[in-house]
Design a protein around this nucleic acid. Structure first.
Lengths: 203, 203
DNA sequence: GTCATCATGTAAGCCGTTACATGATTGC
DNA sequence: GCAATCATGTAACGGCTTACATGATGAC
């Protein structure tokens, strides 16, 4: 949620939309947990409710008279008493700091790593490298453990097929992470071109 | 847990061991949830506690006198009052039926599908086929939706890389499922050889 | 005026986790 | 005797889900 809000101010309903659009099966958050979560984030000072900026959408004349009247009434009520309007949330600087921590935290499974990658544009190139390389190390360890523990034992046809498939997936993950790391390294070396590898004329 | 117990009688501690060995990162069950779960299963009549068959392990003379004394004391206590011995669980016929239902149920994500495959040896060939083909259809739909929703939009470099990687994983899953299905079909046709495709001389 | 959709929220229940407590077994 | 491991269990907490309740908007 913080990752989405870091890009744009949104209200809850649309936030869920966007989350589903971006992460699909990885998202999995229902309204019943979304709204309480937003309230928790607000209480923690990580997001803030911004007054629904009516300037941008000045009640678009929709041709419906009754609709417009209702819209004006609703707007007055909202500003007067804050009753049941859209609540547009904006991430705070504390929220951005927390997002960074969450992206760097690196506990959790493959799913949470995928979510981190999805929002890693909010990290610095160095932090991204760190994220990728740590994950790479983790996956490598997992793969080594699996290979070691398997030994020569056979369990069951389907279990063996499953493990084989999973091993391949892990290897592919590893290759993908290698690609991410090398691309990131390329970006870094592009940003700080070091024309003379020997001899230290540093600015 | 039912899937493991369907193969052998075990007590909780070793059940967790076996679960971790078989499923590794897919398992994820802690003692804090394992024991309550076993009690729930027992209350539901899906597993039953069997008296620790001491016959198989007649207190192996370990060379430790005090140890043996303690073992005898513990055994008497266990039979007398059932206090704190190993509780060996055995799956009941109701448990096997439930296991079958759970394997066939087919709600849940990729993880739960993997677990189903891990124990699908407890299904009939026809039920296995059903399991695999349904999953195949699901993954195909997922893939189609992703391709459709993506359209030509670009989000962000890392998000795009993530989606690309995930798409490839889905395609590989699909191919793997195809393989499973075709192998299963082979098994079925081997079991019921139908030498004459035309003309119906059925037994 | 009514229906679909947008939009926010609450309540009950389930299930998992960590942290803690305790007892049994074996080796030294 | 003591430590490590085996073995079972409880308590507090968190977080997600479904089902429910409600209000606002816009289209016809």
């Amino acid at each position: 949620m913080l990752g989405v809000l870091a890009d744009q101010e949104l209200h809850g309903y649309e936030l869920k939309r966007r989350l589903t659009e971006l992460l699909g099966t990885l998202s999995s958050v229902s309204f019943g947990s979304l709204y309480p979560a937003l309230n928790r984030l607000e209480r923690a000072g990580l997001v803030a409710v911004v007054e629904a900026r009516s300037d941008t959408s000045p009640i678009p004349t929709s041709g419906s008279l009754t609709g417009e009247v209702a819209a004006y009434r609703a707007r007055r009520n909202r500003t007067n008493r804050g009753r049941r309007g859209k609540k547009v949330y904006s991430i705070t600087s504390a929220g951005r700091a927390r997002l960074r921590d969450l992206l760097l935290d690196h506990t959790g499974d493959d799913r949470s790593f995928a979510v981190r990658v999805a929002f890693c544009r909010h990290l610095s190139p160095e932090e991204r490298m760190d994220l990728f390389e740590r994950r790479r190390a983790e996956v490598a360890v997992q793969l080594a453990e699996r290979t070691a523990s398997r030994g020569d034992r056979r369990f069951d046809k389907y279990l063996d097929l499953l493990r084989e498939h999973h091993d391949e997936a892990l290897e592919r993950d590893l290759a993908w992470l290698d690609r991410l790391v090398s691309e990131e390294r390329q970006i870094q070396s592009d940003a700080q071109p070091e024309p003379e590898p020997s001899g230290g004329s540093r600015t």
